[in-house]
Amino acid sequence: MNISGPAWLTVLVTWVTGLTYQVPQKLDLGDSLAVTAFSLLLVFAALASIWLVIAILGRVLRQFQKPKGGA
């Protein structure tokens, strides 16, 4: 599950920034860059979230599908 580390981090950062960022109506360079950074972060967060879910799901399913040991 170590591989999902960056996914956790991205989701966390986005939730925090998403709560504090207000989208302006008119965009100068600073606003554009802020929107760009925020939006890219959100794209990463959404896809990282899917990564996280797939990783957890794959791990769980593989646990259940492991061949049972026996005599």
Binding site: I3, P6, L40, V43, F44, A46, L47, A48, I50, W51, I54, A55, G58
Partner: peptide, 9 residues
């Protein structure tokens, strides 16, 4: 699933 990050980048 790490491919998702390339899709984001």
């Amino acid at each position: 699933p790490s491919s998702l990050m390339l899709g984001a980048a």
